[in-house]
Design a protein around this nucleic acid. Structure first.
Lengths: 134, 134
DNA sequence: AGTATTCATCATATCATCATGATAAAACAC
DNA sequence: GTGTTTTATCATGATGATATGATGAATACT
């Protein structure tokens, strides 16, 4: 309900990289096999993360992907927000534009609580937090 | 990010019915026009809600749809769960099966907090709560 | 330079969601 | 019982997410 398949793939891949030696490059093929993710699809996802500087990529022999930041400095939000919206300010969940703190709908406060808890999770949980359990 | 288009349509329609006289039947055409929702698509959604006893439907002249329960007795969850999963127990958000209170992953507690807040919103907010603002 | 390795990218296929248009079936009015 | 109104349903199309297979381009090694 919350995360798209693409986002889950991205998170799994990043967690896999976090478990490797820092600075070591991992090939797409390895990750695709280990994580059971379609190879070319994963390649596209990783490329996307590389373009936004979450990962470094190098081609050719000894090439692959590696994390730029340390896992404990990498909040899940940085990865998730590449592939789906993780808005800081909750929208009116019925899609109204004019719903805000100053012009709230009747559900605004309830919704804000739930939405904020969700956002805080993505913001405050790091890749390292998840990687403890592989 | 949270609600599908279909779910939003369903909620809007139910809120519209909640604003009508109790017991009054409203036609699909009226709702589709007022809410700017595709007519036949809305019809299908409403039919689905009728089959699960959220709504009553009657055909022919003077027909239409109406709420079965009072808006203040109708939690959003009853509507939303028709069209998407609103699970009481949060899954491991990476899709692992074995993640639970007794076998938690490192993020379990954080995620549980966020996921529970979301579920409580759907469970504790009623249609009446939303309808105050139209 | 040549070759193997690896990421980058393109063309296409599949599937679910969202949506439209046409027709069937029920209920009411006369 | 005929016609009108309305929901019920079917056939089909459009779009985006997911996925596959083939090819291009960069790097390293000899």
């Amino acid at each position: 309900m919350i995360l798209s398949q693409t986002t889950v793939y991205a998170l799994k891949a990043v967690m896999y990289l976090a478990a490797a030696d820092p600075g070591e490059s991992i090939r797409v093929d390895d990750m695709a096999n280990k994580l059971d993710v379609p190879r070319n699809y994963l390649s596209k996802i990783l490329h996307s993360l590389a373009r936004s500087n979450i990962l470094d990529s190098t081609r050719g022999p000894k090439g692959g992907f590696r994390l730029v930041a340390r896992p404990e400095d990498l909040p899940l939000e940085d990865i998730v927000s590449q592939f789906q919206e993780v808005s800081e300010r909750p929208r009116c969940f019925l899609g109204r534009e004019e719903c805000s703190d100053s012009t709230p709908c009747a559900a605004h406060d309830h919704w804000k609580g739930a939405s904020t808890a969700m956002h805080r999770f993505f913001k405050e949980t790091t890749v390292a937090d998840l990687s403890h359990h592989g």
